[in-house]
Design a protein around this nucleic acid. Sequence first.
DNA 1: ACATGTTTTAGACACGTGTATGACTTCAGA
DNA 2: TCTGAAGTCATACACGTGTCTAAAACATGT
Lengths: 241, 241
Amino acid sequence: MSERNTNNLTTDHPSTGTGYDAVATRERILEAAGEVFAERGYRDATVREICARAGANLASINYHFGDKERLYAEVFERARCTSNEAMERLAALDGQAPEVRLSAFVTAFLSKLLDRGRPTWHAKLMSREMIEPTSVLDRMIEQSIRPQWEMLCGVVGELMGVPARSHAAAMAAASVMGQCLHYHHTREVGARLCPGFYDREQIIVEVAQHVTAFSLSAMEGMRRRIRLGEVPSGWIEEAPR
Amino acid sequence: MSERNTNNLTTDHPSTGTGYDAVATRERILEAAGEVFAERGYRDATVREICARAGANLASINYHFGDKERLYAEVFERARCTSNEAMERLAALDGQAPEVRLSAFVTAFLSKLLDRGRPTWHAKLMSREMIEPTSVLDRMIEQSIRPQWEMLCGVVGELMGVPARSHAAAMAAASVMGQCLHYHHTREVGARLCPGFYDREQIIVEVAQHVTAFSLSAMEGMRRRIRLGEVPSGWIEEAPR
DNA sequence: ACATGTTTTAGACACGTGTATGACTTCAGA
DNA sequence: TCTGAAGTCATACACGTGTCTAAAACATGT
């Protein structure tokens, strides 16, 4: 059963001099594990499927990572890096109008969630961990979620005319995030309620346009409600989180 | 291990004359299964935990339901009944203004998702099934989700001045549902980002107020955007689903 | 009291899964 | 060519889980 060589990578003899395609195996396992964990979740993912998809032996997980849990943690460590680079691209829009930054955030977020391309398991893995947390959740929150969260709070705070650290900004940010995640989570249901919806070519930009327009309209209206005193004063004050 | 009698029900000798507390056992298993399935999901739920929580013997699931999968289906059949009665209460608001009906829908939905009371596993089970579908999804969609979905589409269509069966109404309905489900799904994350948020007494009405106000503002604005021709005409046409 | 059908019980079995083990292969350096 | 370390491989073990079975306990009609 030497099918391992069929999907061989180019690095047969890495310059590290560790022999074999050792790093390549480690790498292949991390990549395969990311996919499988994202598809099935931590519990339902089996080390056998991960190894099979990576073209590696069953025992190689034990050898390279110790056990399944530490492999999972490593996958997240890896995902964090690629995730943050997208974040920095968004932070570069710092000077732009909040409308532009919101649109960019929504588009980037939805692209990672809905795209059928290859390395999309980063965002899918995160959305899974949010719903069904494991031991890595706390680290993930501090390293990945909270930075994005606070940036989003800043944008919506600007749009509504309230402090970023206010109750109102937090809930508006949740509304934006909730809409984006919904199109990912309820994909199966949506495909049955509106057959063919997810098969469209421009699905990502269409959804992004709707979410952006819907949220911008909402916050425009909320800004007026706040001005008219229809929102409790406790919600629009700066609050220590 | 006769703790089964501690949480005994009142129906010790049912008039059906089938002996024992047979129906009571069936009932207890259904109730316990609903809780466990909602907490852990179909796969991670174990028949041993269900039986233990129901105070029933391990083999009783096999006797009363055949196997784990048919028990799961029965649980959904049961959940459908209680779910629909809440639906009918909402349908009774038919004459009211769409703003009132939206507020009622959001409040009812969030109550079932966030309440820490007893029979809240109905909605939680449904939200689980939406994310990680099993074989019962299709039936659940037709019997529970689609009716609620079409009612919501009607309300938001009225609010935006577009047909209920239009693309624009469908996406707005998704935005409302997505916000509600988000506060349930990301409870763990939310509790860490804003400590104490979910511990408030009035959490449900506060969230309901926000989601309602946010969505109403959004659709008010969308209505204007549509009037100004900023929305593609294909989105606001009646479309066969 | 007895026979009959129903329900409950303890225990066993087969299977999938994570982990561990020992032998084999590959490769750099002497 | 020899040696030791790093990596890979097939295989085995322990454990949790869903399912099944045969006997015991029970209720009921005669």
